[in-house]
Design a protein around this nucleic acid. Structure first.
Lengths: 206, 206
DNA sequence: CTCCAATGTGACTGGGTGGTCACAATTCCA
DNA sequence: TGGAATTGTGACCACCCAGTCACATTGGAG
């Protein structure tokens, strides 16, 4: 939690700090990121930083909540359509939009990736908390798919979550910084999701 | 490449170094791992290390090739059966065995995970090289599946590779250190692979 | 204008890092 | 046994880090 002093700051100064923290933690995982580098690039005295935050981890956690908050806002519109669309269409939109977020805010994206990959023990619980949220959102989506009959009732739900989570992570991680053009990557995302939808075994129907 | 001196060493001393390097690089990614910690735990003078290796990265690359060599040996027997088994059976065996490797040699496994996740520019090319190898092995497997008719010809091959790679990575990474019992995790692996085989959409046949 | 609280500052501390080097110990062969 | 080549050593260097603290600056209320 930032100290009260931080919130008294003019918003441009808060922005300055946010921007440079974002850059540093996008480039390096928590342990390798350097507070000294942040203050030096932002032209802020080291001591000032410690008037705003109790330490490196405090700054980091502030950044993380801010970044995830913005990501949530970005994805929000999608959830409002969840009743109207079938599972596969919703999944497609969801992962398309996640990729667009990564594309539009590459620094935010890299921060979340570094955070997610972090092995630091004291960060694990926060990571697990966020994972729980994702699981429950996905479960809700999947449940709707099952009820509507779009998704086969024979499958193992945990396994489905696992597969989608793994694939989505790879889909976003691996292409955020590549210079593929948007339409072709959107098509690629859909062809990956088609594999999950139809399976590898040939289908006799249709 | 280690210096000649290293290979003149009695093998128990080489083992000593290997063991402690393994532990350190299993626990920390390259940048965070400490050469000082390795020499101190192994009771070896810092200077000696620099008689064996030209630096930290040299030691690391030696460790990486060693670890991947051992993993390759471990998975070798599987490839000899590739002509006899169908795609899905082979995939199951392959990922089962990968998991067993991670289970049996957790330190080796963690080293490979840290290596794979590394963002260091000078390590990237080595990572890409290893990725190419995996891709070509998998493509071979998939081609056999297509020829035998076990795999639908309508799918996008790149997308299939992508999906399997992502899922396999998650499957091994996330459960290597958990204390699940072996049989139940083997079953879980198969249920995840079943999702990929059959797809989420209900099948009318059967 | 005065005074005091809030904010800004950067030299400094203690600790860690990879890498070096002058020298000591050992090994091996003539 | 002598002497050269190989191997072992740890104090030391320059650098970087998170965090501290005594002090300077600012700004607003009375």
């Amino acid at each position: 939690m930032p100290k009260p002093t931080f919130f008294n700051l003019p918003k441009e100064r808060r922005h300055l700090i946010f921007r440079h923290a974002l850059e540093e933690f996008a480039q390096f995982p928590y342990e390798q990121a350097s507070l000294s580098a942040i203050v030096s690039k932002a032209n802020i005295a080291k001591g000032s930083m410690y008037q705003y935050f109790s330490g490196k981890k405090d700054l980091y956690m502030y950044l993380i909540t801010e970044v995830y908050g913005q990501k949530r806002e970005f994805l929000q519109p999608l959830w409002e359509q969840k009743e109207k669309l079938d599972f596969f269409k919703l999944a497609s939109l969801y992962y398309q939009r996640s990729w667009h977020f990564a594309r539009q805010y590459p620094l935010h994206h890299r921060v979340t990736v570094n955070f997610w990959d972090s092995k630091d023990a004291s960060l694990r619980e926060e990571i697990l908390r966020k994972k729980e949220i994702r699981i429950s959102e996905f479960s809700e989506m999947l449940e709707l798919g099952l009820q509507s009959g779009a998704v086969s009732p024979d499958i193992n739900k945990d396994a489905v979550w696992f597969v989608y989570h793994a694939v989505a992570k790879a889909l976003v991680d691996n292409f955020a910084d590549s210079d593929v053009n948007a339409e072709s990557h959107e098509a690629y995302i859909d062809s990956v999701l088609a594999v999950l939808e139809l399976g590898l075994r040939p289908r006799k129907e249709q």
